[in-house]
Design a protein around this nucleic acid. Structure first.
Lengths: 367, 367
DNA sequence: ATAAATTTGTGCGTATGTATC
DNA sequence: GGATACATACGCACAAATTTA
């Protein structure tokens, strides 16, 4: 048979069309010349044209529409796996499901699937998860760093992502060494500030703070707490602040609160790291015969279901969780499409909102 | 052109061959009849045969060897993608996160990654998700069918999974046509029975039931409720049962309870579909000045956070969610390793457990 | 070792059906 | 309704790889 370049005719035709699409001669959405026209132009039979087109169709470059013609399909970058990875510290904890939902909503709409990993907030698991992801042909990554306050010893994995040109977006926090990378965070300093300021405005002065210290969120909420004190000209007393690690989560906050009560440390309000801790602390207070909000005001953080439906509706800080997920997904999509940072209009910081419920009470005039 | 069944000839031929492969008539490694032979046997042109074969080749079921023949491909187990897919109706609803966590724990340990999809309980999304999964090279699938009470119109996708030898496991329910497939479900009849029996044993007789009716879980809990009544020889009164659809979730239960109160329907206990509904109903009772459990006993279902931490700790039914996920994962791993059903020791039904808290009270002797 | 037969791969021409404009 | 274009289908011819006589 007639062969040029030692290749089949249909193959040559296919390659020619592919080149035109790559060149931009045929642009996404364009109609490709009809089979008969191509057959004349290239001097081959219509059957041969069809063979060539069928290959391009399999590859997803073009799509035939019965009775209308054949059209160039929207070009998918690198013909990739259409997978992205999402790594979070937890997946069943009370805010992550909605976060993941937000990411999934956006990504599903764009035809991507999510490979989900969780780290239990452990660096070792994060390393393992990243290692895993490297073998999986993903086009992008959304990651919530574990224990983001602590120096990261596996930066090489992120460097590898850069090398492979796989974009990634941090949520909730970044690593100090990677602070220039795109990230979406909630303004937890502002949140900590807002809720502490609210208590100060209610007349409270002996405000105990309870913060988790091994992630950025806790650190920021703590900073906001301090900021409010400074603004009111009240000295910050480290003795009244409980800082705990993930491992002590279940015990330390309650123990310390009981300790404060038992040793007579003045305390008329407590700012808690989140709603969960607030609930546990309330339990501890109740065990010591203290009532909320009559004796002690208490605040949560996250506006979780617990805050709404708990024994006492909690004054807390709301932050849009699905939206955080959606924004992270949109930002990642921008990166995947090569949009430079300067052109991005997606905000990187989400503002928190104070939700006032029934767990705080104005303090009487006397000191 | 000549068409039978309204289908194209090549399509019929393709389906016939597919069936033979699925049946085992054509086994992996076997040579399938030559194009000319098939063309004679089926009374179609060789071109048509080739069209049919090309589809099977695309799908990876057969492979042609120039000058030798066309062979049924050996299904490559192992060495695979190390990915499995998980399709659930929701991911942020209050039991799914823990379910997914359970699956992930087991799968991560075995070195698998999870591709997560959710359907929002829509058949259309389920179809789309399955289609997506087909292109992703997964080694297995765990799926919670959407609206499992309704007949499934996209069985062909499950047949395709069978053909490709990709094992799948149903959770929470199956489709009527696929009831022989491996599945893990919670015994919701037993759960509904246990909690209703508990109320009957406390001496309650006027027990209102509130159940969601458009999924299998609600239907089963309702059945258990009826079973308990029968066992106690108490007539089942449909007038005292509220059946609602997902869409009316937020309004109907509360409205009906208020209606019962306002019209003087005797009611000294309420069995609720889940904790969420129980909480809302308690709100409604409180608005009418009724106290729980003094005036009316109430039960939930799911043993969610709300049940533990709500205004009144709820008597409810616990079902191990992570364990459901873990068992589904283990069952899938068995399937992926070719363990036949007879040898499996993983239980397929998870027993519910009654959790007694403070929302129910023994009824006084008098009627 | 060679030739013949078999089987897939490529290519051409034609005809009819059907959806869209 | 008519024109256009894709979808399906048939028959034929020759090339290339492999098996078999």
């Amino acid at each position: 048979m007639a062969e040029r370049n030692g290749k089949a005719k249909y193959f040559n035709l296919m390659e020619a069309l592919k080149k035109d699409i790559a060149n931009g001669m045929i642009r996404p959405g364009d109609k490709i010349p009809s089979e008969n026209v191509l057959s004349q132009q290239f001097g081959v039979s219509r059957h041969t044209v069809r063979k060539a087109l069928s290959i391009l169709e399999e590859e997803g470059l073009i799509a035939a529409q019965h009775g209308r013609g054949t059209f160039c399909i929207k070009r998918t970058r690198s013909g990739g796996s259409r997978n992205i990875a999402v790594i979070t510290t937890y997946i069943n904890d009370y805010i992550f499901p909605r976060l993941i939902q937000g990411i999934d909503d956006v990504m599903t709409e764009k035809g991507y699937s999510i490979i989900l990993k969780n780290t239990y907030n452990s660096r070792k698991n994060e390393e393992k998860a990243l290692e895993d992801i490297m073998t999986k042909d993903v086009e992008g990554l959304i990651i919530e760093p574990s224990k983001s306050e602590i120096f990261c010893r596996h930066i090489h994995q992120y460097e590898e992502l850069d090398l492979k040109d796989i974009p990634y977006v941090f949520i909730q926090g970044t690593y100090p060494q990677l602070s220039s990378k795109p990230s979406i965070t909630m303004d937890d300093v502002q949140g900590g500030y807002l809720i502490t300021k609210y208590l100060l405005e209610l007349g409270h002065r002996n405000i105990v703070g309870i913060f988790k210290i091994d992630d950025m969120q806790g650190d920021h909420r703590h900073k906001g707490y301090i900021k409010a004190f400074n603004e009111f000209g009240i000295p910050y007393d480290p003795e009244r602040v409980v800082l705990y690690h993930t491992e002590d989560r279940r015990t330390k906050p309650c123990l310390m609160v009981k300790h404060f009560l038992d040793t007579g440390v003045p305390m008329d309000a407590i700012v808690c790291y989140n709603d969960q801790v607030a609930l546990e602390v309330m339990q501890a207070l109740s065990e010591r015969g203290k009532k909320v909000p009559e004796d002690i005001s208490i605040t949560g953080y996250d506006n979780s279901l617990i805050a709404q439906n708990g024994p006492i509706p909690l004054t807390t800080i709301a932050h849009p969780k699905e939206q955080l997920g959606r924004m992270a997904a949109q930002l990642l999509l921008e990166k995947m499409n090569g949009v430079p940072d300067e052109e991005s209009k997606i905000p990187r910081i989400i503002a928190p909102e104070l939700i006032v419920r029934d767990s705080c009470r104005r303090r009487d005039g006397k000191g």
